[in-house]
Each structure stands twice: as structure tokens, then as C-alpha cells.
């Protein structure tokens, strides 16, 4: 067996791939978070809808997105497979176990937390991604006076379709018109459903707890948890990925439910 195939078949090699896919998904969360902050812009969704077109048409982003879907699948399937194999390593369980005395509960429940996140991803993608790609989302026309900055929006008839995802043109010298699929409206309508809002909140707790352990753990698996960096890795893992990112995402359904109804 060659050294490389030995690596990928070994317990360490499999953990390395789990780490790399996990960190890639973490980097996606940062981008997704920054992009979605445009939901709060208060422009009836013009910036967010234009951004959605860019994200679904740019070839580099499209290629990366396929890598992302593959990573999600690999991370989930391999993670569950590893969890099942690890369970087999202890066929007879202890009658008494005080696991809390030696480890954090998040680190022992990555499989459960990950499964919750996977279920959430399926719901989330069928709600928005599949709806945007395959469903019928009506268009909205945004008219901006570039001199005064005044913005008006007007829903297009539901049977309106256009060949390009984004129509952008000037009327005269001072009026800019943008006609785009109104994903923002879809988001704002979906989040009037309290059940869905609660599901999103629970999912963000799962993300928080998963990354509380996962981010730091990835660096340990890659062997780069040197004492010098341990503090900074821990700080980014906890403050960035276990608190800031889930809180930011959780703010979105809450914002629409409470302030945009």
C-alpha cells in the first residue's frame, strides 16, 4: 500500500479530511454570514437580491458551491460512519460513567449535533436554495433616483419572467431600474412562521455547540495546535464560531418575525 493510500485509510488520515472539510464549511459560514447581513440593509432587499444573482451565476462561486455540497455530504456521511465505528470499539458499556468529570459534553455529542445540523441544512436548502433555483419566485422592480438616493420598489406581476436573472438599465440620466427575483420577500414571508423561526434557533444552538468543539478540534487533528497558537485558536473558535456566527444567523429570522411582519 502506498504511503498516501495508507494515510487516507488510517484513523488519522480520516480525521484530517474531517478537519479540512469542517474548516472549509466554517469558512463558508463566514462568507454566508457577511453576505446575508445585507438582509438588514433596509432597502427592501435590492442589495440582497442582487447579491443572490451574483452568488448563483459567478462561475468561480458556482464551482466552489459544488465543492461545498460535496464537503457537506462527505463530512456528514464520514462523520456518522466514524461515530458508528467508534461505538463498536467499546462493545460492552460501563455501568457507571462520569464523563463530565473529564470532558465537555459538546465534544462527546458531535454526531448528534451534526445530525441536527444536517437535518437543518436539508430544510434550509429546500426552503430557499431549491425554491430559488426550481420554484417560482416573483420579480420585483427597484427604481432608484441616483441624485437623491430615493428608492422605490414595486412587485412585478406573478407571471412576469425575464431571460436574464438581473435586468439593470437607466431611464434618462438619473433613474436606475433593477428588476430581479425577490428572494428577500421569500425570506421575509417564510420567517413569519413561528415554527420555522424556532427550528432555525434550535439549529443555530446546534451549530454553536458543534463549532465550540469542532473548530479547535480541527486544528488538533491537523497537528497544528502548538502551545503558541492554542489561545488564539480557542478564542476564534469560541467567540467567532460558537457565539458571533450563530448569533448573527439567529438574528435574521428573529428580525423578520418581530420587525418585518
Amino acid at each position: 500500500m502506498s504511503k498516501i493510500s495508507q494515510l487516507f485509510n488510517s484513523s488519522i488520515g480520516q480525521k484530517v479530511i474531517m478537519s479540512l472539510t469542517g474548516l472549509f464549511l466554517c469558512s463558508f459560514l463566514v462568507i454566508h454570514m457577511i453576505g446575508n447581513l445585507q438582509l438588514f440593509k433596509g432597502d427592501s432587499g435590492m442589495a440582497f437580491n442582487t447579491y443572490a444573482v451574483f452568488m448563483t451565476t459567478n462561475p468561480l462561486i458556482k464551482t466552489t458551491s459544488y465543492l461545498l455540497y460535496a464537503s457537506i455530504l462527505y463530512h456528514a456521511v464520514k462523520g456518522l460512519w466514524l461515530a458508528a465505528r467508534n461505538r463498536k470499539a467499546r462493545p460492552v458499556k460501563y455501568a457507571m460513567s462520569q464523563a463530565n468529570a473529564n470532558s465537555h459534553w459538546t465534544s462527546r455529542n458531535m454526531g448528534v449535533l451534526g445530525t441536527m445540523i444536517l437535518v437543518f441544512i436539508v430544510v434550509h436548502m429546500s426552503d430557499f436554495w431549491a425554491e430559488y433555483k426550481f420554484g417560482h419566485i416573483p420579480y420585483t422592480k427597484y427604481t432608484t433616483n441616483i441624485l437623491t438616493g430615493e428608492l422605490t420598489s414595486e412587485a412585478m406581476p406573478t407571471d412576469y419572467v425575464q431571460s436574464k436573472k438581473l435586468e439593470e438599465y437607466m431611464v434618462g440620466t438619473d433613474t436606475k431600474v433593477v428588476i430581479v427575483k425577490d428572494l428577500y420577500k421569500e425570506v421575509s414571508e417564510e420567517f413569519q412562521n413561528i415554527g420555522l423561526v424556532l427550528l432555525y434557533l434550535v439549529a443555530m444552538f446546534a451549530v454553536s455547540f458543534h463549532l465550540y468543539h469542532g473548530f479547535q478540534s480541527a486544528f488538533q487533528s491537523l497537528g497544528i495546535a502548538y502551545d503558541n497558537y492554542k489561545g488564539i485558536i480557542k478564542a476564534i473558535g469560541i467567540w467567532g464560531f460558537a457565539i458571533l456566527i450563530p448569533a448573527g444567523f439567529a438574528a435574521m429570522p428573529l428580525y423578520f418575525y418581530f420587525f418585518k411582519s
Binding site: 480525521k15 467508534n86 470499539a89 464523563a99 487533528s221
Partner: peptide, 28 residues
């Protein structure tokens, strides 16, 4: 043996205080 998920339980219970920094070194 199962694979490591970095719970740190081993380090906490080791009677000789072996650090999981060794696990990071072995991965490296």
C-alpha cells in the same frame, strides 16, 4: 481501537499527566 475525537478525556484521567499536545505532534 477507536479514533480520536479530541474530547481531552484521556489527558484529564491520565495518572501521569500525559498531554494531548503529544496527539497533535503524532498527527503532525
Amino acid at each position: 481501537f477507536g479514533s480520536c475525537t479530541n474530547t481531552g478525556a484521556c489527558e484529564a484521567e491520565c495518572p501521569k499527566g500525559i498531554s494531548i499536545a503529544n496527539i497533535a505532534r503524532m498527527n503532525r
